[in-house]
Design a protein around this nucleic acid. Structure first.
Lengths: 145, 145
DNA sequence: TCATATTACATAGCATGCTATTTATATGGA
DNA sequence: TCCATATAAATAGCATGCTATGTAATATGA
């Protein structure tokens, strides 16, 4: 009967984990020359789109825990990518601003990330690529409850 | 022109990361009552299939770095899931063996993991599920170079 | 208005993953 | 046999992610 059988090669969770680790490793290698890490890049994407956001706003947009974002922002400040300024109306909060260094990295970093995505999907037809993104979005929606 | 535009909602890497974190969080919650973590579960899958493997064998099968596996095995030994025995013919190596506690967890743990997978894929037709696994495997193959 | 609840953020502790280094043992060839 | 190289593990250091807590400030409602 093999009641407890579990084939990791056909486990969605196992494949998702392996795929995500590969994506992260490739992205890390691609942006390391820029002095960036994957979490920093993800955070910069939000700040390139709109500067002056609070930590809480980034937490909501990137769907990581607040403590995780606090750690990433601390390393970004340490590395000269962002500055924190007091929030104009809420003494609990701070607004987050890019340094010149961070602004200058936008084009190179996004191109590097797009290259990783392109390489990952290179074996799929355009229709398959679109379907793949759609399927991932649907699984995310389901797991997000 | 928006040369540097990057829409994370349509980035395969971003979606893969989010999906994998959700899978891992759900699995962690599901097996936490058993006293297991995701990496421990993944390692147990290999040892349930074949006891007495070396660390190097697990590294090859699970595609994590040797240092990562060493850490996971250390925590598993600490938690009473595995024992290390001297390798019969190679003094550098050790063989890894399950404790009774670990053997007793196989059915419950695999059922919990299968439930997470089933829930994640519940919104997909059987054809879409098969296609999804195939697409992930192909992307993994491509990223693995 | 004042007590209570909520919110923003920091911090501690831990698991997982990676790179790099070190130590001990095996192995292959000169 | 001996040396150079390869292999098995351990360890250190760091990034990311999570849970759980603590603190200060704000919002809410009786």
């Amino acid at each position: 009967m093999d009641i407890a059988s579990f084939d990791k090669a056909s486990s969605a969770g196992f494949l998702a984990n392996m795929m995500a680790r590969l994506f992260e490793n490739r992205l890390a290698a691609a942006i390391r020359p820029l002095g960036l890490t994957p979490a920093q890049f993800m955070t910069l994407l939000e700040l390139w789109a709109e500067e002056g956001q609070t930590q809480a706003a980034l937490v909501a947009r990137l769907a990581v825990e607040q403590a995780t974002m606090a750690g990433t922002l601390g390393r970004m400040e340490r590395d000269g990518l962002i500055e924190r300024r007091p929030h104009p109306s809420d003494k609990r909060a701070q607004t987050l601003h890019l340094t010149e260094r961070a602004r200058a990295l936008e084009a190179l970093a996004t191109e590097a990330a797009q290259a990783v995505n392109a390489r990952a999907l290179a074996g799929l037809t355009p229709e398959e690529q679109a379907l793949f993104l759609d399927l991932m979005a649907r699984v995310i929606g389901r797991l997000g409850k």
